[in-house]
Design a protein around this nucleic acid. Structure first.
Lengths: 221, 221
DNA sequence: GAATGTTGTAATCGAATGATTACTTAATTC
DNA sequence: GAATTAAGTAATCATTCGATTACAACATTC
């Protein structure tokens, strides 16, 4: 906090230009996706989300009503982006077979830190009444897409989903952190991701979560 | 609470017989495994664990020092049980091929509610310094078992792990809740679990998590 | 059978956190 | 250009929760 000439309640910087509520909402959703992906639903505070989005904590709460609603919005957005990316990959005519195109689209999404991990956190909270309902429904939507739109058989679809869950888990584990240190980790990543590994390694380089509390409520100047 | 003849500080029931600390520790670990599996690390309170174990909340804390230590102990125990079950399945000579025996052992473990879900919750917390380290190490231990002891190739091991992660996810999602209601859920479960589905359906019938706070600190009489 | 250690609980504390209230200031409208 | 709406924050509250302290009852040893 600069002790400038400003009196206690007057402005410090140049007059802030305002943002439309839709844009602000999307910005908070992106920040929330990142934080929820790292720390899970219960492990994330609205204050951490606010800090990541560069707004105050009460504003985050006011936009979404409750933390649970915010997480549900993150889940729905993630599922929407996932299916949209899959449909784009499907529509994109190419010599590459369908399954491979979808796999590549999936790994592409893994590079959006938090997106698929937030989903994963939701998937293991099926015991929660609200979150569980949305998560089950979303997972089934993906399954139906694979069958009805991509033309997979039930077993092929399960196969595809299994590899997706393994990739999610490896990213959640931050197994890429051990890529240089552990030969088995390297081999596992290569076996699980094969040609898609290089793409993933490029973006997996952010540090571990810090346990120090966010400075909170105050916007970064 | 019975309003018996007891004065405020006197005993109510018969003199409680004590339990050895090892047995008590194991009992608390089992309860913690169940609760962590349902609600995740951050979503679980030491009080919920205490209530599930039938002891007081401070006692849970005293046994394990911190909640994080408790969760780490749950993870290590789960990994130990997993590898022990796998080694038993491997040693058990039979006509059934190795992969199938291990799969059956895995589904057997899924019936211990919470065990594999606690692991799964740990797996997606790789960004946490301590939990992440233990989770990565444990996952790699399983991978090494598959390669070095069960004789899997790297790709076969990844394949096996992928199906394990899908099964974990389906259990975490409580997809079995929709087995009777949704044809796609039924088909997905059958495609993913195949012959092992019947085993899993038998034990998946406990209700959703309640959001009412545990009565806490008081032992059930 | 006192002394001593162990198993266990009741009471409570301090910090963290989701939410609320009241307020400020930038846009927008008439 | 006043009035009104919308974007945003500071301050603060009530709960929750992990942890600590002090104490009680059972077990063991000598």
């Amino acid at each position: 906090m600069s002790d400038a000439t400003a009196s206690s309640t007057s402005r410090v910087g140049p007059p802030t230009t305002r943002m439309g509520s839709d844009a602000r909402r999307e910005l908070v959703l992106e920040a929330a996706t990142s934080v929820f992906g790292q720390r899970g639903y219960a492990g994330t505070t609205t204050d951490q989300v606010a800090a990541a989005a560069g707004v105050s904590q009460p504003y985050v709460v006011r936009i979404f009503g409750t933390k649970e609603n915010l997480f549900l919005a993150v889940l729905k957005r993630a599922l929407d982006l996932l299916l949209t990316a899959f449909r784009a990959a499907l529509a994109d005519e190419s010599e590459i077979p369908v399954g491979r195109r979808l796999s590549l689209a999936y790994v592409d999404l893994l590079t959006d830190r938090g997106l698929l991990l937030s989903l994963m956190h939701g998937f293991v909270l099926g015991a929660d009444p609200e979150i569980g309902r949305v998560a089950r429904c979303g997972f089934l939507d993906v399954y139906r897409f694979l069958k009805n739109e991509a033309g997979f058989s039930p077993v092929e679809a399960a196969e595809f989903l299994a590899h997706g869950m393994l990739m999610n888990t490896l990213v959640g584990l931050r197994m890429t952190d051990d890529y240089d240190k552990d030969a088995d980790a390297r081999e596992l990543l290569e076996g699980a991701l094969q040609s898609k590994l290089a793409l993933l390694l490029e973006v997996t380089n952010s540090p571990a979560v810090s346990n120090s509390p966010a400075v909170s409520t105050s916007t970064a100047s």
